[in-house]
Design a protein around this nucleic acid. Structure first.
Lengths: 226, 226
DNA sequence: CGCATACGTTACCGACCGGTAACAGCCGCG
DNA sequence: CGCGGCTGTTACCGGTCGGTAACGTATGCG
């Protein structure tokens, strides 16, 4: 609830030897790895090297902690999003590819467990949960940004392309939970993105002037897995 | 565990006034609507009009019930899958479209909550859960069948097309949970399927377009490739 | 020094969890 | 009739859940 402000105005550095920060990091990790409902506050406090009482001195309730973890995840994602598209300003197609690779590397990496926001959407079905709105707003913004990128890239149907990209993104994160390692359908998700881009975007790219479907996979995949 | 066979050889009709069947139906509904971990055996028994003791007379444990619900869901899905592609034998492209529409209508309909198997994959993270293997096998089979259909349709890269279709399918089910009603990205998922099919399949769409009055969206590729 | 912040510790609460024991009634069927 | 399945009912178990009270202590700072 209340923000614990140090009286000496210590600006709360990122390292965070403070109990609250340790609890926060531990909670995010446990929620992500084992699921939100599967982790109790006792396990969080114990994992953070403290006890339940210190937990409730820093957070009003478990639901509030969950919502705050989700908000932190959203901020982190947007940071990575902005950082990934910044070097390719003026090249929307490259931005789409980059943002897709960036998102995939976060949610579909070797030790990843999918998208923490999507997973939370499955676990938190009650509409009144404080984390529910965080998830909805985040997903709506993802959709909005993908559509905007598709429009900037000159897509023949920006809404359709943006939505298709979002479906691929969500599907990649989801299949990551079921298929072990990197052997699942995500090995072909970047190829699908390129195919969609080739289909919806004007063929202004001289390098990709070849046929849309066939040769795209092997070349792009080699680049992606490197 | 053991199949309760009526001594009078009543063949256990589908209606199921039996307690076990009522519990089973109630459990599937509650698990799907509210999530597996969010529903206790008390709520299931009470929702089925009975009590917890009768629950444990029919099912060994909650985890076993969960696994059995997932198995029933898998069987039901394959039934619909087979029934949906049967009328279009010999037209693999139409089969892909139909199976996609069928799956979407089950998991992304007005009152749907996504794919129950995918949702269970998020909720049941422990690998030793009896339902875990059911989910993995089902998803692996979905992938295998989609790739087979892509190969039958003569895709230039059957694995890539099949995987891309699967990602769209999973993404559609997942976004259904976050975006209310039919306003989410799933409105464009069928369009994405058609775009992918047009990109990966040989251009034999003249005959299909003439016969199928269904999609008005497959004309988009003409604009994209021109 | 005294005071406040931050944290650890122990014990506790009511509620619910999954799961069980014991008993009583109903009903079909020999 | 009596027997055996199926069901309803009540009570109970140990454990865990989210959450709280009370007390002790270390540190920092005026």
């Amino acid at each position: 609830m209340k923000e614990a402000k140090s009286p000496s105005a210590a600006p709360c550095p990122e390292g965070g030897t403070r109990v609250r920060d340790r609890i926060f990091r531990t909670a995010r990790e446990l929620f992500y790895r084992q699921g939100i409902r599967a982790v109790g506050v006792d396990a969080i406090a114990c994992g953070a090297g403290t006890n339940k009482m210190s937990f409730y001195r820093s957070f009003g309730s478990k639901d509030e902690l969950v919502a705050e973890c989700l908000r932190a995840q959203v901020s982190e994602f947007w940071e990575h999003w902005d950082a990934s598209i910044a070097p390719h300003a003026g090249d929307p197609r490259r931005q789409i590819e980059t943002v897709f690779e960036s998102s995939m590397s976060k949610s579909c990496g070797a030790d990843a467990c999918g998208c923490p926001l999507s997973n939370a959407a499955v676990e938190l079905r009650e509409a009144e949960h404080p984390g529910h709105q965080v998830i909805r707003e985040y997903k709506a913004e993802v959709r909005r940004r993908l559509r905007a990128l598709a429009r900037d890239a000159g897509a023949s149907d920006a809404e359709a392309l943006g939505d298709a990209l979002m479906l691929l993104l969500e599907g990649s994160a989801m299949t990551r939970l079921t298929f072990a390692g990197n052997g699942g359908p995500i090995v072909n998700s970047l190829g699908a993105v390129h195919t969609l881009l080739d289909a919806y975007l004007p063929a202004r790219k001289a390098a990709a002037a070849a046929k849309a479907a066939k040769p795209a996979k092997s070349a792009r995949l080699a680049k992606a897995t490197s």
